[in-house]
């Protein structure tokens, strides 16, 4: 299953597909001379290896989507990258897509880096048939003649078990699940190296969700791409992700292989995420997390989780815990485990 699919030991020889180092992205507003900074992503480092699905979990407002936008180079004010580097295997030396020259960005987009977006209805132009959408998005990056592209498109749809008649449909003629599968096809038609998926199944019901996830994972295995998958649904991560990063309030709080996270969660927030979900056949009462997510314009000092944490100690409100390794491949930022040698 998951652990075997990807070697757990990072090989030094092969550079990772994506590496993010100490990324800090703030939303800066300046209204009537009052400056306000929302630290949506505050010092995140992670790597996505070749051929793996890296899952990011966390509640809304924890900075997951901001991180994805940075990776995709979609920086719009008031969002601002304050520090850190983003390096891709296929684009190095610039420190991120946002710093690369436009010609390089055009070379990389869709061919090497593609994006599966959440609301398929917002991605597909309602006035254009799907064939035109595919031509708009992918054809400039593929080259060759239109006939060749059309043949390639048919072969790709056949691989995804989609009927080619979807190409002549308008988005409103397709069901939500079908549209979402069309966006998966759209994101994978150029066989990209890295696919970013932002909540690809949140709006779908369970049956369609299972199909779409199977499709993402199947095509990823076949092409050997890497996927950065963001969703708050831990059930999805358990089934699809190889490694998992847990985000809370702009920080990465825990990272490990999926099996390890579920078997041995360390951070109290991770424990809560896994244990709070109700299951069919289990009648134990469960409770949600008390308190409110922190205001990122004025985050709590020290560990950002400490106001809601059941294990909070004195030190937690004073300084922020560093992300340290407790076991090979398992990193956690919590004073209860790894700081200053005490466990």
């Amino acid at each position: 299953m998951h652990a075997q699919a990807v070697p757990d030991v990072p090989s030094e020889a092969v550079p990772p597909m994506l590496s993010v180092r100490d990324l800090r992205t703030y939303y800066r507003a300046n209204r009537l001379g009052i400056k306000r900074e929302v630290k949506a992503v505050d010092g995140i480092s992670l790597t996505v290896r070749r051929g793996e699905i890296y899952g990011l979990a966390g509640e809304s407002g924890s900075g997951k989507s901001t991180l994805l936008n940075c990776v995709a180079g979609a920086i719009r004010p008031p969002m601002e990258i304050v520090g850190g580097d983003i390096d891709f295997a296929f684009l190095s030396g610039y420190g991120g897509l946002h710093r690369a020259p436009p010609a390089e960005v055009a070379r990389v987009r869709w061919r090497h880096l593609s994006y599966i977006m959440q609301g398929s209805m917002n991605v597909l132009n309602p006035l254009r048939r799907l064939r035109s959408v595919f031509v708009d998005f992918a054809y400039p990056h593929v080259g060759g003649t239109r006939q060749q592209f059309e043949r390639q498109l048919h072969a790709h749809l056949a691989r995804l078990n989609l009927d080619r008649s979807v190409l002549s449909a308008y988005p409103h003629e397709l069901s939500g699940g079908m549209r979402q599968r069309a966006t998966v096809a759209l994101a994978t038609v150029c066989r990209p190296d890295l696919i970013i998926a932002d909540e690809p199944t949140t709006a779908l019901d369970v049956l369609v969700q299972k199909e779409v996830l199977g499709m993402i994972r199947g095509i990823q295995r076949e092409m050997g791409s890497s996927v950065l998958l963001v969703t708050h649904d831990m059930g999805v991560h358990a089934h699809v992700s190889d490694r998992l990063g847990i985000m809370y309030a702009g920080h990465l709080v825990e990272e490990a292989g999926t099996a390890e996270i579920f078997r041995n969660p360390l951070h109290p927030y991770t424990k809560h995420l896994i244990s709070s979900l109700p299951r069919i056949g289990d009648d134990a009462p469960r409770c949600g997390l008390g308190g409110a997510p922190p205001n990122l314009a004025d985050p709590p000092l020290g560990c950002r989780f400490h106001p809601r944490c059941p294990l909070a100690m004195k030190v937690c409100s004073g300084e922020a815990p560093a992300m340290l390794e407790t076991a090979p491949g398992h990193r956690v930022a919590c004073f209860a485990y790894n700081q200053s040698g005490g466990a």
Partner: peptide, 19 residues
């Protein structure tokens, strides 16, 4: 999709057939 690995191993929806 249960947040359990025990179940995940049993029915990973990974086949490309049946979609």
């Amino acid at each position: 999709l249960l947040p359990d690995l025990a179940n995940a191993a049993a029915d990973v929806p990974i086949s490309m057939t049946g979609v």
